[in-house]
Amino acid sequence: MNYNLSYLRELEAESIFILREVAAQFERPVLLFSGGKDSILMTHLARKAFYPAKIPFPLLHIDTGHNFDETIAYRDALVKELGVKLTVGSVQEAIDSGMVTEEKGYNASRNGLQTAVLLDELEKGKFDAAMGGARRDEEKARAKERFFSHRDEFGQWDPKNQRPELWSLYNGKKQFGEHFRIFPISNWTELDVWQYLAMEKVELPSLYYAHRRNVFRRDGMLLAESEHIQRKPEEKLFETMIRCRTIGDITCTGVWESEADDLDKIIQEVATTRMTERGGRADDKRSETAMEDRKIKGYF
């Protein structure tokens, strides 16, 4: 008998351990759900971690209002199947009530506005642990993130003063009013996620598979046609085969020309691609330290 776990099963076991640790150590955890493949992976792992019981925490979606329609349909079907509670924090409502101010211009994005809404929802729900699907391979500031990441009462991250994490001993102790961000899939890479989702036969939103769509080119990226994006006169629409590698706010999520219309082809594509998945995210391109700056303020 061979007592070696394959690396995908080892990553799975580690993530399940973290999810159970959160349920055990915190009073009011919540799982942040964006509709992207990483949060779909998280709900799948959570389902496995607590089987045959239901997932013992609700989901929270911070909705920019600028969604691909497919994302919302997928989210609602999944929530129904899991039998968990979903809370939606609306960036549109935050704008309407004057809590945040919308950016203007061609590259306007609601990405940054999500932070205020997220922190507000965490406070309203008295959540003491928010689980996110961020991975360390995504971005350089995330490469230094802990599994259990402490946030002060302002929701801020202090990258220079993080708690050491050793072995599998996680310290979720905090003062009243503080919370934790938890990243159960920290050690997964993009390719790992795809290989695992394929192995587990997890159903994904159609956006991830190659399909025909109207797009236009901006700053070397392809963006999908949407009522939420103002196009410049020279930005001409054209129809082509594309797919999403990440799914976020439609205004800043680049799409990729691709013929990969099933999981095997996607894995092949991801394994040979020469661009990072966040290479298509305008929100990261704002400066060299865009992610670090946003994370310090309390972004996902």
Binding site: A141, K144, T189, E292
Partner: peptide, 20 residues
């Protein structure tokens, strides 16, 4: 990784890297 590290040209924190 971090801004403060690049300023000082040294690594302060543990960073995790992945390759296959």
């Amino acid at each position: 990784g971090l801004k403060s590290e690049r300023e000082q040209g040294i690594t302060i924190d543990v960073a995790y890297r992945y390759f296959a």
